[in-house]
């Protein structure tokens, strides 16, 4: 601020609003701030502007304290998008933790890309109910929601809960793996009382490359789950080393 351009009460030339706003925010260098402050004290119009700016700050704060309700259609669409993201994440191979996903991106990227395509469709349609089409290597095209399409690493303790989760999320049998592995599972099934395959899932169980095979159990909704070795690579014969029975809640 120069003396020549200095608006003062003596000059009866008002400060512009920017200068007064800067004064309030302590943005003016000290000498200019002093002169501007003196002017405001002496000039009723500039004092009014000064007060109005302070009041505006309070009014904006009042307004800011009230949320603006998100329109229902926007909220509905957002719910669908977030639901799709949950599906995408849950569909990754045996992974339910973002930390795991971040640490092992190479393992999950192909599945993520496939799932992302499904999410785009879902989000575009704005629907809430979602059916995710996962990659399926089986010969007959059966697929299960949430069931892994590659080889998850699990323990024998997890076999029952995981098989139950996979099957409950599927509309029909889950037959994953190479054709030779599925054929091996079919051969194994013929040795059991009911040979209708419910589940074939390649897995590493307790460190061993295995195949999880599900067959109808003794009661409605029951699935007898076997873990066998020998079906991957060589194509048999299957050698079971663990079995359990799960009861599906939605069958």
């Amino acid at each position: 601020m120069t003396d020549a351009g200095l608006p003062t009460s003596e000059h009866l030339e008002h400060l512009d609003t920017d200068t007064i706003a800067d004064l309030i925010e302590n943005l003016l260098p000290a000498p200019e701030a002093h002169r501007a402050r003196e002017h405001v004290k002496a000039c009723p119009d500039c004092q009014q502007t000064y007060d109005a700016l302070l009041q505006l700050t309070e009014d904006l704060a009042d307004e800011g304290r009230t949320d603006i309700p998100m329109p229902a259609d926007v909220a509905e669409h957002l719910n669908a998008v977030i639901a799709s993201e949950s599906v995408l994440r849950a569909s990754t191979v045996g992974v339910h933790s973002l930390v795991q996903l971040r640490e092992e991106p190479h393992r999950h990227l192909p599945k993520l890309l496939l799932a992302a395509a499904a999410v785009v469709v879902v989000a575009g349609a704005g629907v809430v109910g979602v059916v995710l089409a996962t990659a399926d290597h089986s010969t007959d095209g059966a697929a299960g929601i949430g069931s892994p399409t590659s080889v998850p690493s699990i323990t024998t303790e997890q076999v029952g809960p995981d098989a139950q989760r996979w099957l409950e999320g599927a509309k029909g049998p889950i037959l994953h793996g190479e054709a030779a592995e599925i054929d091996c599972a079919r051969q194994f099934a013929t040795t059991q009382p009911d040979s209708e395959l419910q589940l074939v899932q390649p897995a590493t169980v307790d460190g061993k490359r295995s195949t999880v095979i599900g067959l109808p159990g003794g009661s409605a909704g029951d699935v007898k789950v076997f873990v066998v070795t020998g079906c991957s690579g060589s194509g048999g014969p299957a050698t079971p080393f663990y079995d359990t029975t799960v009861t599906l809640r939605n069958r």
Binding site: M1, T2, A4, G5, L6, P7, L15, D16, D18, T19, D22, L27, L28, P29, E32, R35, A36
Partner: peptide, 9 residues
């Protein structure tokens, strides 16, 4: 704008 408004420190 005055000189002050264009010379914020």
């Amino acid at each position: 704008p005055t000189a002050a408004a264009t010379s914020s420190g």
